[in-house]
Amino acid sequence: MESLSNRKKVLEQKPMNFWERIYLPSIFKGLAITFRHMFVKKETIFYPEQTRPVSENWRGLHSLKRDENGRERCTACGLCALACPAEAITMTAAERQKGEENLYREEKYAAVYEINMLRCIFCGLCEEACPKEAIYLDGPIVAADYLRKDFIYGKDKLVEAPLKS
């Protein structure tokens, strides 16, 4: 058939010559190539000890941030839960009591904040929705576990460690 685009290339398949047909030279060539690979630099990354460097816009496990005084930034507005396309985030708001000013920055805070890691698609929309810059997806990958209920991460796993000193 006539080629309309004129880009068709007719490949010529030459009959194999004697050395190609007995196949042994190519076997030895292949053996040499694989043998050379014994001495190349090993690409293995020993995972738990070493980790692969991640890119700037990497989105991993969520963390709830604290401000410069070590107070939780989250005000339990629910915008992240609203923004979440996978319906992974739930929270219960509570009012800040007297004497808790050093714990929570705003007058309202999240008493319970849960993310279901099996639902989460790590899209980062919660991060963008947050008006208080309280949630960031800057953690590692989510660890494996045995039970489904263990993938619902509460505040104990999500909130950043309190400031030292």
Binding site: F35, M38, F46
Partner: peptide, 8 residues
């Protein structure tokens, strides 16, 4: 197998 494939 690992060595020939550049692994450990």
């Amino acid at each position: 197998a690992a060595f020939l494939q550049g692994r450990v």
